[in-house]
Simulated assay, not measured.
Amino acid sequence: MWEWLAENAWLFWLIAVVVLAAVELLTLDFLFLMMATAALLAFGLSWVTDSFVLQVVAFAVTSVLLIFLVRPVALRRLNRSTPDTASNTDRLIGLPCQVLEAVTDRGGLVRLEGESWSARSVTGEPLPAGSDAWVHDIEGATALVAPYPAAAADGRPAPRPSY
């Protein structure tokens, strides 16, 4: 087994690169990308030297350096380019919606972003069909909604209440 590994170290490192890159695609945390890059270096080194121990040491040292020096910079840069970007259901919080079926603290139906959502009143106050509301939170597939305040006298929308 060890003899085969020593003779085919390049194949071991190539498999390691592919597996680590695949895991990175699942996690998207840059940790496995750094390790895949180190495995790629070890793959290149396997063509220069037959010393598997040297390849493992190079992989380990490069992994540690990349994880502690390059990864934080890459994460900061990524987070700076997308600051506080709400995604999935988080982006729906604070949006207005229209009540399709009366909403109570037990249930109801609202139109949100062109889709029908099950809804519950966050204040416990029933909302009649046809009224306007806003999304306070999302719990699973249920929108927790509150009554939308009436517009101010000068036509500007009233500020959203906070709970």
Rank of each mutant, 00 (worst) to 15 (best):
L75Q: 10
P83V: 13
L112W: 08
V110G: 04
V64F: 14
V70C: 01
L14T: 06
C97E: 04
F52H: 03
V17H: 02
N79Q: 14
T82S: 11
G108F: 04
R71G: 05
S46A: 11
S87Y: 11
P96L: 08
A39W: 00
L100M: 14
A102K: 13
L11E: 10
F43M: 12
V17K: 01
M35D: 02
V103Y: 03
P83M: 14
A21S: 14
L95M: 13
M34R: 02
D50I: 00
M34N: 05
W13T: 00
L112S: 06
A39Y: 04
A38W: 00
A74F: 11
L20R: 02
L14A: 15
A58P: 00
L25D: 01
F59M: 06
P96H: 09
L5T: 12
M35Y: 06
R91H: 11
A39L: 07
V19T: 09
W13V: 01
I93T: 13
A58Y: 03
T37G: 14
I93K: 10
V61N: 07
F32Y: 09
A102H: 05
W47P: 00
A38T: 01
R106D: 14
L14F: 15
G114K: 12
P72A: 10
N88D: 14
F43H: 03
L100A: 14
L54P: 01
S87V: 15
V17N: 01
F68H: 09
F12I: 10
L54I: 13
L26Q: 10
S46L: 06
G94K: 13
L20V: 07
A21N: 04
A74K: 01
L45Y: 03
V48R: 07
L92P: 08
D84E: 15
F68D: 03
P72E: 09
D50C: 00
L31F: 15
L28H: 06
R111Y: 03
A42H: 02
L28W: 06
V23W: 07
Q55W: 07
F52K: 02
R111I: 10
Q98A: 13
A42V: 06
T62H: 03
G94L: 12
V17P: 02
D84A: 14
L25F: 13
D90P: 04
L45F: 07
L69T: 13
V64D: 08
A58C: 13
R106V: 10
R111F: 06
L75W: 04
D50S: 11
R71P: 00
G94W: 11
V53D: 07
T104Y: 07
L31P: 01
D50Y: 00
A102R: 15
V23T: 10
G114A: 09
G108I: 02
F52Y: 12
T104K: 09
A36Q: 03
L112K: 05
T27P: 08
L41Q: 04
A38Y: 01
A21K: 05
V17F: 12
A74M: 14
E7Y: 07
C97K: 04
V23A: 12
V19C: 09
V99T: 09
A9K: 01
V110D: 00
V70I: 14
L100W: 07
T27E: 06
A22V: 12
L40C: 09
V18N: 07
V17G: 05
V61L: 15
L109P: 01
A36V: 06
V70H: 02
V48P: 04
G107Y: 12
L65F: 11
A21V: 05
R80S: 12
L100V: 15
